[in-house]
Measured scan of single mutants.
Amino acid sequence: MSGIALSRLAQERKAWRKDHPFGFVAVPTKNPDGTMNLMNWECAIPGKKGTPWEGGLFKLRMLFKDDYPSSPPKCKFEPPLFHPNVYPSGTVCLSILEEDKDWRPAITIKQILLGIQELLNEPNIQDPAQAEAYTIYCQNRVEYEKRVRAQAKKFAPS
C-alpha cells in the first residue's frame, strides 16, 4: 500500500471527524483483525431537504486505489439507486470521479460526498449510466419523482 495514499486518507479521516456536513457519514471499514482499512470507507449521503430525495439516507462505498490521490476513489451505492447517473452496479457516474475528466488530487472526501448529493437531485442527462431511470427522467418527470420519493422512504434511517 502506498504511504502517500494512507497518509492522505488519515488526514481526510481526521478532517472529517473534526468537521463534516450534518447527516453525512464517512467511516473507514475494519479489517478482520480489527485494524482500520483506510482504503475502503462506508459512507452515507442524506437526501437534500426540499427535494424528492429528502428523508432518505443512501449508503455508498468509497474504494481507494494505491495511487490515490492521483486517481479518484470508486464510489458505489449499496444497494444501487434508481438514478440516471448511477450504473446498474451502483457505481456513480460523475465527472469529478473520473481521472480523465474533472478529478483533481486536491478534491476531498467531503467535496465528493457533497457533489454526489447535488447530483442526486440534478442528474447530468449528457452522461446517462442507467437506461430506465434516464428514460423516465426525460419522458415523465412526475413518475420519476414518485419513484425517487418511494426510494427515499425505503432508505429512511430507522
Score class of each variant (00 low, 15 high):
residue 86 V to D: 02
residue 129 A to L: 00
residue 88 P to W: 06
residue 148 V to T: 04
residue 137 Y to P: 01
residue 136 I to T: 09
residue 25 V to S: 08
residue 18 K to I: 05
residue 17 R to D: 01
residue 103 W to H: 06
residue 9 L to P: 01
residue 19 D to G: 07
residue 114 L to H: 12
residue 72 P to L: 01
residue 8 R to S: 02
residue 141 R to G: 08
residue 61 R to N: 14
residue 14 K to C: 15
residue 66 D to H: 12
residue 140 N to T: 02
residue 34 G to F: 04
residue 56 G to Y: 04
residue 126 Q to N: 10
residue 50 G to P: 01
residue 36 M to E: 05
residue 29 T to K: 13
residue 84 P to D: 07
residue 46 P to C: 10
residue 152 A to S: 08
residue 57 L to C: 12
residue 48 K to S: 03
residue 5 A to Q: 13
residue 6 L to M: 15
residue 51 T to Y: 04
residue 145 E to H: 02
residue 39 M to P: 06
residue 119 L to A: 01
residue 65 K to W: 02
residue 106 A to N: 02
residue 49 K to I: 10
residue 45 I to R: 06
residue 31 N to E: 11
residue 88 P to S: 14
residue 37 N to P: 03
residue 142 V to Q: 12
residue 119 L to Y: 14
residue 88 P to L: 14
residue 40 N to S: 14
residue 95 S to H: 00
residue 14 K to D: 04
residue 149 R to I: 13
residue 137 Y to A: 01
residue 15 A to N: 08
residue 83 H to N: 01
residue 118 E to H: 12
residue 2 S to F: 14
residue 35 T to D: 02
residue 108 T to M: 14
residue 121 N to A: 11
residue 146 K to I: 11
residue 93 C to N: 03
residue 43 C to H: 01
residue 84 P to V: 15
residue 77 F to P: 02
residue 90 G to H: 01
residue 8 R to E: 14
residue 56 G to V: 00
residue 34 G to L: 07
residue 126 Q to F: 09
residue 56 G to H: 07
residue 48 K to T: 11
residue 43 C to Q: 03
residue 128 P to C: 08
residue 60 L to V: 09
residue 105 P to A: 14
residue 138 C to T: 15
residue 107 I to K: 06
residue 144 Y to N: 03
residue 44 A to W: 09
residue 135 T to P: 05
residue 144 Y to T: 00
residue 121 N to V: 13
residue 21 P to N: 07
residue 40 N to G: 04
residue 129 A to D: 05
residue 23 G to R: 04
residue 11 Q to D: 12
residue 24 F to W: 05
residue 27 V to K: 13
residue 122 E to H: 10
residue 131 A to G: 13
residue 38 L to Q: 00
residue 99 E to W: 08
residue 56 G to T: 00
residue 96 I to W: 04
residue 81 L to E: 00
residue 2 S to C: 15
residue 23 G to A: 07
residue 52 P to M: 10
residue 44 A to L: 11
residue 31 N to Y: 13
residue 125 I to P: 07
residue 148 V to W: 03
residue 72 P to S: 10
residue 73 P to E: 02
residue 156 A to V: 08
residue 112 I to H: 12
residue 127 D to T: 15
residue 74 K to Y: 15
residue 65 K to T: 14
residue 114 L to Q: 12
residue 92 V to A: 10
residue 48 K to E: 08
residue 71 S to R: 08
residue 114 L to A: 12
residue 87 Y to S: 01
residue 18 K to A: 05
residue 53 W to E: 04
residue 114 L to Y: 12
residue 82 F to V: 03
residue 150 A to I: 14
residue 37 N to F: 13
residue 54 E to N: 04
residue 111 Q to H: 14
residue 78 E to N: 14
residue 14 K to F: 07
residue 10 A to C: 00
residue 51 T to M: 02
residue 22 F to C: 02
residue 91 T to I: 14
residue 59 K to T: 12
residue 123 P to K: 00
residue 136 I to F: 13
residue 93 C to E: 06
residue 142 V to F: 12
residue 48 K to D: 03
residue 51 T to N: 02
residue 35 T to W: 03
residue 94 L to S: 08
residue 107 I to F: 11
residue 24 F to S: 01
residue 21 P to V: 00
residue 6 L to V: 11
residue 87 Y to K: 03
residue 39 M to W: 09
residue 4 I to E: 12
residue 23 G to C: 00
residue 59 K to C: 13
residue 119 L to N: 04
residue 69 P to T: 00
residue 75 C to L: 15
residue 17 R to G: 02
residue 138 C to I: 13
residue 117 Q to H: 13
residue 38 L to N: 01
residue 72 P to E: 09
residue 7 S to C: 10
residue 98 E to Y: 15
residue 59 K to S: 12
residue 82 F to Q: 02
residue 147 R to S: 13
residue 74 K to H: 15
residue 122 E to S: 11
residue 30 K to L: 06
residue 150 A to N: 12
residue 141 R to H: 13
residue 24 F to E: 08
residue 157 P to R: 08
residue 57 L to Y: 07
residue 27 V to P: 08
residue 14 K to N: 07
residue 147 R to W: 08
residue 107 I to T: 10
residue 16 W to M: 03
residue 23 G to N: 11
residue 41 W to Q: 05
residue 127 D to N: 05
residue 142 V to N: 15
residue 110 K to I: 07
residue 12 E to K: 03
residue 103 W to L: 02
residue 85 N to F: 09
residue 112 I to M: 15
residue 63 L to D: 14
residue 99 E to F: 09
residue 52 P to N: 15
residue 108 T to G: 10
residue 148 V to Y: 03
residue 70 S to G: 14
residue 39 M to G: 09
residue 64 F to K: 03
residue 35 T to L: 02
